[in-house]
Amino acid sequence: MSTKSDLLDLLKKNIGKAVSGQQAADLLGVSRNAVWKAVSHLKEEGYPIESRTKAGYCLTALPDQLTQEAVEKDVHADIDVIVKDTVSSTNDLVKAGDWGDRPVVIIANRQTGGRGRLGRKFESPGGVGIYISFGMKPSFSIAHSPFVTMAAAVAVCRAVEKVVGIETNIKWVNDIYYNRKKVCGILTEAQTNMETGVIDRLIIGIGINCFPGSFPPEIAHKAGSLADHAGAFSRSALAAELINQVCSIMNDVEDRSFLTEYRRRCFILGEQIYVHPLSSDKEIPARALAIEDDGGLLVEYLDGENAGNREVLRTGEISIRLHDQENVPRT
């Protein structure tokens, strides 16, 4: 056992009560500095520990920990489930794995190198989120790959509604919002065979902010969580339901039967947005009109030389932001 594990056991036995640094050091047979380092690591992993002046350290609540057993008991899909505490990136682990024909899902309590779209860093603090990646060999062709992210977004909304009991909304194409803030991002990667038109390996990474966490100042104003306090629901139960929903909806990618629900949940339709082409620094005001049958976003430009013109935007070509953050719905 490590000092960190021993200290956690000690704090659990005294939950709600402060244990002094010296008392913990004496009981564990280590230095006070070792206790302080262990407390720092536990806080980084999401454990609710308060440092009380002249009193010591107090575990204020039993943490909601992701465990293999808790997740697996509610999974009904035919998939290998792996749960880890801390990883660099669940997508990278799945990508590097040799999982054959059987699908696999890796779930982590914390990521140190999580990635979003366009290589952006995805903040993944411990104890407050779910970081999960699926590895699959789908039966559909490359032509259907643009719909994978959209289907996964619907699956997230369904899982959240079933476990947490709240309705979330989608910002085209891959972000989930609740209470006007982003609570989930999705990153889909694929390895394809260009000769056969078959997707050899499909990787779907999903990061969900379950409870309030510590976010950098540059994203703190737009990052939210599904609940306002830790332990409001079981992360293991949500992870299991997410696995069930994702595995199920992948069967609907070819017939696109989920698009009706995707459109209903897409809150930007009818709103003014800014189109930001990835190849430039320009922001072009536009109105989001519709989700096309091929997954593209139909917009009408509102200013400049293209004012009045309509265009269908494709996944990966642009990023968008709302003209007025107040347009993000309260649910």
Rank of each mutant, 00 (worst) to 15 (best):
Ser257Gln: 10
Ala237Ser: 14
Cys247Leu: 09
Arg287Ile: 15
Gly270Trp: 03
Ala220Phe: 11
Val253Gln: 03
Pro285Ser: 05
Asn244Ile: 03
Glu254Met: 11
Ile291Leu: 06
Glu254Thr: 15
Asp294Lys: 06
Gly231Met: 10
Cys266Pro: 08
Gly231Phe: 10
Tyr274Asp: 04
Ala307Ser: 15
Ala307Val: 09
Pro216Arg: 09
Gln245Val: 12
Ala223His: 02
Arg265Glu: 07
Glu271Phe: 04
Gly304Phe: 03
His221Asn: 14
Ile284Leu: 15
Asp252Ile: 10
Leu242Phe: 09
Leu278His: 10
Val299Ile: 06
Cys266His: 06
Ser279Asp: 13
Arg263Gly: 01
Phe267Glu: 00
Thr260Phe: 10
Tyr301Ile: 03
Asn251Tyr: 15
Pro216Phe: 09
Leu297Thr: 02
Ser248Thr: 12
Arg256Thr: 07
Tyr301Ser: 01
Phe258Glu: 04
His221Ala: 13
Leu259Ala: 06
Gly308Asp: 04
Ser234Thr: 12
Lys282Trp: 11
Gln245Phe: 10
Leu259Met: 15
Ala286Pro: 00
Gly296Pro: 03
Glu292Met: 14
Gly304Glu: 03
Val253Trp: 01
Lys282Asn: 12
Tyr301Glu: 03
Ala288Ser: 06
Ala223Lys: 00
Glu305Trp: 09
Arg287Leu: 08
Asn309Gln: 13
Ile249Leu: 15
Glu241His: 11
Asn244Gly: 05
Val253Pro: 02
Pro285Trp: 01
Lys282Ser: 13
Asp228Asn: 12
Pro216Asn: 15
Ala227Gly: 10
Leu242Lys: 05
Gly304His: 05
